[in-house]
Simulated assay, not measured.
Amino acid sequence: MFNTTLKPLLLSATLLATALITSLSSQAQSTTNNLHDSWNALLNKHVVAINHNHSTEVDYAAIQGDHTQLKTYLDSLSAVTQNEFDAWEKPKQLAFLINAYNAFTVELIVSNLGSKEPQNLKSIKDLGSFFSSPWSKAFVPLLGKTRSLDDIEHGLIRGSGKYNDPRIHFAVNCASIGCPALRGEAFTATELESQLQQQTVRFLSDTTRNFAQENTLNISSIFKWYGDDFEKGFRGAETLQQFLLQYSDALKLVPAQQKALRNNDMKVKFLDYNWDLNARQ
């Protein structure tokens, strides 16, 4: 016969084990988010919203004064092993990769300012050469390899096939005015979905870069360069038009324009891209 006096002991042991597992899970989540705390602090301090919060400017000169803090953060990213990364859930991985792309882009700008004032560096493209772009430079120690910014965006994020979320194009920042805003906070696993959604609405509702005019939809060249990413079934969107219709409110499309876009009767025009540095003036 089962000894009934053992029941309370077994129940206590079960509760203790459950509490321990919950605690370890919470600690793991906290550790992942804490990884980006110093980056979050730098963004809070040096990224300024402009253009009715549709865009941001970055105080690269001031970040230069906090360069040690930035480099410490970058070192912490570089210390993450491939095995650690692989054990994370997808939101943790994607937040990590977006933050890494943005932080190393800022590092590329700051480390090339030297004693110059930011206004003397007109564009990130100035950091490339005739034979290679700044995005192809291998200077990023990440997940056991020395990578380029292109490797992070086109290899680890887009090329992996894991994430299939075109909204990343409104989260990664190329240090240019034409880019979607550099978010003034770090991306985190727990907030990633809302952050990506906010960034998408923020960019699409910016009438300096995306706007409808009668039967023409004028949109950023991002949609030309990465058009295929918006046609891979994200929330059922098999075409760029279907993706944009999900954000008809942000684009301020009236019902007639929505219908025309849905029926592929609306002309789509890609606007010129502004590669000037998004530096705080």
Rank of each mutant, 00 (worst) to 15 (best):
F139N: 11
S123C: 10
P8C: 03
S111P: 01
S205W: 02
G159Q: 04
S194H: 09
G233P: 04
A103F: 03
S12E: 04
A212R: 03
G161E: 03
Q241E: 15
E84W: 00
R158G: 03
K122E: 15
R262P: 08
R235M: 12
F203Q: 11
A279G: 02
V48N: 13
S132P: 01
K125F: 01
L97Q: 13
L127Y: 05
E193A: 14
C179G: 08
F130C: 03
Q257W: 09
N99W: 10
S176I: 10
E89L: 12
A41L: 12
L261C: 12
A171L: 07
Q64T: 10
A62M: 02
L70K: 11
N53V: 11
V48C: 04
Y163N: 13
Q241I: 01
M1A: 11
C174W: 05
T56H: 11
L143G: 06
K145D: 13
F170K: 07
A171D: 09
I109T: 10
Q258A: 09
I50N: 01
D150S: 09
L217K: 08
A17E: 02
P134Q: 11
K125E: 13
T4F: 15
L77W: 08
L245N: 07
W39G: 06
L113Q: 04
A175M: 02
V48F: 14
S78E: 13
W275E: 08
V268K: 11
I98L: 07
M266E: 15
I177S: 13
N264F: 05
D272T: 11
P118V: 00
K71Q: 15
S38G: 01
V80N: 09
L70G: 08
D228G: 05
K116D: 11
Q197I: 04
Q64D: 09
L217W: 06
S160R: 02
T56A: 08
K267L: 13
L10I: 05
M1D: 12
Q64W: 03
K162F: 03
S136I: 01
A62V: 00
H52V: 05
S115R: 07
F139Y: 05
Q246T: 10
L9I: 13
N102R: 06
A95H: 02
F104M: 07
S26N: 12
T22H: 11
